[in-house]
Amino acid sequence: MHETSYVIKPKLARPGRVPVTTCAWDHDGKRIAGGIGDGSIQVWSIKPGWGSRPDIHIEKSHSDDITGLKFSSDGNILLSRSFDGSLKVWDMRKTKEALKVFEDLPNNYGQTNIAFSPGENLFFTGTSVERESTVGGLLCFFDRANLELVSRVGISPSCSVVRCCWHPKLNQIFATVGDKNQGGTHILYDPTISERGALVCVARAPRKKSIDDFEAKPVIHNPHALPLFRDQPSRKRQREKVLKDPLKSHKPELPITGPGFGGRVGASQGSLLTQYLMKQGGMIKETWMEEDPREAILKYADAAAKDPKFIAPAYADTQPEPVFAKSDSEEEEK
């Protein structure tokens, strides 16, 4: 069996790049329909030399991109769904105008489709939820013979119905709903005429939990997640990381040999600020290590009493006279 590939180039009113937003085969596989980005529907029949020019060209079928096409099994009817919020029914024998147009069907998703019931007595599509609308996602069913809206079934209060399908064997309707944040599938069925499918799990009572059902969750140890098994980072990366760290890459301040500046005291005047200030005030002499501390302090007692500089003036009226204790050491008595 030989496989052959074909490339179909849609017919355009003016040269340019126009996307094909959707396409569909007919029931016999002898025709293919495409929804073109310029709003047209083009149908090609499979025959020698096909693909060069469409057999049916419906210009401006919709005012926006087409999201879904569906042939009837006899090939006489083509359904089209679009972003413009409409569903149109086309008779393939008369394509100048649509056989029927259904409006007010919001559509915000490029995957929104149309589907037939198993006997093709009905066709249906989903609707999208609009921002200010209080109606949720719906499935709208239409009668093929009378071309009328038969029923509107609410599927989701907050999510749009994107795609739908009526399974012929199970006789159940599947509708996918969702938006950018969530998604799900809803199944519509009749317990009397549906077979298997959703009935298999709905009719079955939930199984009671047994003690044997308990399973301890295994603890998985990933050796490469432990520091012991990790590869040592390269020296180059470590150096780059240290250089980016403002604390680690800070150069130590060099000692000042001059008089000092910027709040720092020069080494020539003493490295400690306290020591520097006491030297400048004459509080420290070079022989202070050899002097008796008690005598050194008492030398300034008279000067402090006559000319108090700091705290004493504030308490001059209330401060009691200081009484110094006599020395108890034997050395001073001698």
Rank of each mutant, 00 (worst) to 15 (best):
H2Q: 15
E3I: 12
V7A: 10
I8W: 05
K9W: 08
P10E: 07
P10Y: 10
K11P: 10
L12C: 13
G16K: 09
V20A: 04
A24V: 09
G29H: 02
K30F: 00
R31N: 00
I32H: 08
G34A: 12
G34R: 03
G39Q: 00
Q42G: 02
K47M: 05
G49Y: 00
W50K: 01
G51Q: 00
I56D: 05
I58R: 04
E59L: 12
K60S: 04
H62P: 01
S63D: 12
D65P: 04
G68W: 01
L69H: 05
S72F: 03
L78S: 02
L78R: 04
R81A: 01
S82D: 03
F83T: 06
L87D: 08
L87M: 10
L87C: 12
K88C: 02
V89H: 12
V89M: 13
R93P: 06
R93W: 12
R93L: 10
T95S: 13
T95W: 12
K96R: 15
K100G: 02
N107Q: 02
N108H: 12
Y109A: 03
P118I: 00
E120K: 02
N121P: 00
L122C: 11
G126L: 00
T127H: 06
S128G: 05
V129K: 02
E130T: 06
E130N: 06
R131I: 15
S133N: 10
V135A: 05
C140K: 13
R144M: 14
V150G: 07
R152F: 05
I155Q: 01
S156R: 03
C159N: 13
C165N: 14
W166G: 01
L170Q: 11
N171V: 02
I173E: 02
A175W: 00
V177E: 03
G178D: 03
K180H: 07
L188Y: 07
Y189Q: 03
Y189A: 02
D190K: 09
T192C: 09
G197V: 06
G197K: 05
C201I: 15
K208P: 15
I211E: 11
P218S: 11
V219K: 14
I220P: 12
I220T: 12
N222W: 12
P223T: 08
A225K: 14
L226H: 13
P233C: 13
K241I: 13
K241F: 15
V242C: 13
D245A: 07
D245Y: 08
S249Q: 00
H250N: 14
E253T: 10
E253D: 08
I256D: 14
P259D: 15
G260M: 00
G262A: 14
G262R: 14
S271P: 12
L272M: 13
L273G: 15
Y276T: 03
Q280I: 04
G282R: 06
G282H: 07
E286D: 06
E286R: 07
W288P: 08
M289A: 14
E291P: 10
R294C: 01
R294Y: 05
E295P: 09
A296I: 00
I297W: 07
K299Q: 13
A301K: 11
A304F: 09
K306I: 04
K306D: 04
F310Q: 11
A312V: 14
A314P: 04
A316L: 08
T318L: 10
V323G: 03
K326V: 09
S327G: 05
D328Q: 06
E333W: 08
